[in-house]
Design a protein around this nucleic acid. Structure first.
Lengths: 345, 345
DNA sequence: ATCTATTGCGTTACCGGTAACTTTAGCTCT
DNA sequence: AGAGCTAAAGTTACCGGTAACGCAATAGAT
């Protein structure tokens, strides 16, 4: 314990080498099991590594430019939304299993925050990036192109991505739900969601929904875009607002299941029978939907899988493997019991 | 565009300096607004930085040892659990606002994964760490001590922490709930939760609960620790299992609200009136609790605040400010309507 | 006119690893 | 015994910034 620790109180490879009576280079070789040393030397060095509690400084390795880092920058709009939390979980699980580390960035759905974060994270020389969404600021795009690293855009499937894309087609999600509800006999619809500055996935769903409804001779006669989080209570009071207006809506499509539950609850408390007097449809198939008495009409999305697949193709690309650059994770409409179906007409 | 890009295709400060006709050092000074250059020089350099799209390499700066990095390693058990997602959101928001980056690590509640992650993240020379939980492997503890960086243990308040601690006293949470339920007249209790290897917060709650119940002359006569996630469906079938046994439980305490909702749903489907025939209490006050018809008896915990406070005291410590090393974020019992209260006795 | 400050900038060395090269020791084979 | 080879090391240079120091030119003071 008479070792003189270096300035920052950390043991360097040079100190290990000195203690073991070999050169830095030999110690480095042992550390990396590179070969070119005797068994006796290996043991000496390993013993000292253990004894001194040496931890390699990966900064130095990456900095030297010999290796790429094992950072992967991951931007997520927010974690209040359960689905994004699951996507992130999928990403980090997979990245971790491949030896990569997630550097998180919450963008709060804004281009500005995303841009700031991209600038910062790129300065750490990440191996790659995973970004939620397909819309980015001009400066972000420029930085991403200049960075020359793999980028996966997730969530909203981008058929001509910056580099790679994993997600689902949200327009189609909305469209299928619209067609299904028209098929159930509904014609007059309301929509309750939250507005974000960027053109985002929820907007694409609404667009697809509106298209299908209009194709079927119906109408989305009232759209509510609240300035709030896309969660239970906004779904509740959003429904209240929507129904307070002079509306003939027979069915409400919500931005997601959390909001739809809010709507469901509003109806329950105000004696509006579902699906008798009002149809309710959500999106995202939250876990809570599987256990409540009424099965919410929704769309099941493989959140975890999107994250895992994104991490997989990123790592694949980093390993030089040929990868599928666009991956559609698919979705699945859940009929549920909160809209009347053909039989009940 | 005749600039020769360096090996990794990135523009270095040296190239900027050469293009601007100054030395590296002068360019560095301009970049950091350190002074010691003329306005004319500043303009020349800034113009070239812009023109060449220069992005600083923070690895080099940190590596040189002059500065500490702006990485903060954050370990979270899992993100399937909504409360941890909120804690993480609070952490990343605050860290981001101070210019720090979150390096995420999901430990799946195991010491092994935590240890592996700590080893990796320390090799990136983080400025500090935020760890969920107060229990760590011996090797982890050794590494943490050797690292010589600030560490905040969150979630489960540790009155004699490794370094700093932010969270709540889970024993007290359980105790207060136990005392409250005894006060409601219950004596025979069941518990439904999930088991994890490590001594964790949920266990502390159960311990506190048991203590209060026994102090009040009651008994936790059946404890169910499922090998599953602490979510809705396990709460559902856990309740089924608990009640299938020869039990006289009048009230069930769940590990969290998600599980409690599952239990509530089981009762609803099986004609067990709540709180008439069975009391139900959860923990965590999930957002869903605020909108469903029945207000779940629960404990409100300032999730976001715990994360934010942890980030704050970590940054404070890094800035050399004196900080409060132990911060009790407090909790608040929500009586709810899923247990009979004194009046209904 | 000479002597100090100050300003503006350049030079050198270094952080902790590793690639590429060189050296040394040990061995085999003629 | 010396040439030729190989295994096991050591040496040097470098990655991209920044601290520390040096130094010339100018400004102000005496």
């Amino acid at each position: 314990m008479t070792e003189k620790p270096s300035k920052n109180n950390k043991v360097s490879l040079a100190e290990v080498a000195r203690a073991a009576g070999v050169s830095k280079m030999t110690a480095s070789r042992v550390l990396r099991s590179e070969g070119g040393y005797s068994e006796k030397t290996r043991e000496k060095v390993m013993a000292k590594i253990d004894q001194l509690g040496y931890l390699p400084n990966r900064l130095a390795t990456v900095f030297a430019g010999d290796q790429t880092s094992t950072f992967v920058g991951v931007s997520i709009p927010d974690l209040g939304n359960e689905v994004f939390a699951q996507v992130l979980e999928g990403i980090d699980q997979k990245l971790g299993s491949f030896g990569y580390q997630t550097v998180l960035g919450l963008t709060q759905h804004t281009h500005e925050q995303e841009e700031t974060w991209i600038r910062t994270v790129l300065s750490w020389q990440p191996a790659g990036l995973i970004l939620t969404g397909r819309s980015h600021s001009a400066r972000s795009l420029e930085m991403l192109r200049n960075a020359g690293i793999p980028v996966v855009e997730i969530w909203d499937l981008n058929s001509s991505p910056l580099d790679m894309s994993v997600g689902i087609n949200h327009f189609d999600c909305g469209f299928d739900m619209g067609r299904y509800l028209v098929g159930c006999g509904y014609r007059q619809f309301g929509y309750v969601g939250t507005s974000h500055n960027a053109a985002n996935a929820a907007t694409a769903r609404l667009d697809g929904f509106t298209k299908a409804v209009e194709d079927g001779g119906g109408k989305v006669q009232r759209q509510l875009c609240l300035h709030d989080t896309a969660s239970f209570y906004p779904g509740y009071y959003g429904t209240e607002q929507l129904l307070a207006g002079d509306t003939q809506a027979e069915c409400i499509f919500f931005q997601n299941d959390s909001m739809a539950f809010g709507g469901l609850q509003y109806c329950a408390r105000n004696g509006i029978s579902v699906p008798g007097e009002m149809g309710i449809a959500g999106w995202g198939d939250l876990p809570v939907a599987s256990v409540l008495g009424t099965r919410l009409t929704s769309v099941r999305v493989p959140h975890l899988k999107i994250g895992q697949k994104a991490a997989e193709i990123l790592v694949g690309r980093l390993s030089g493997e040929p990868v599928q650059t666009v991956f559609d994770a698919g979705f699945h409409l859940i009929p549920g019991s909160t809209v009347r179906n053909i039989e009940t007409l």
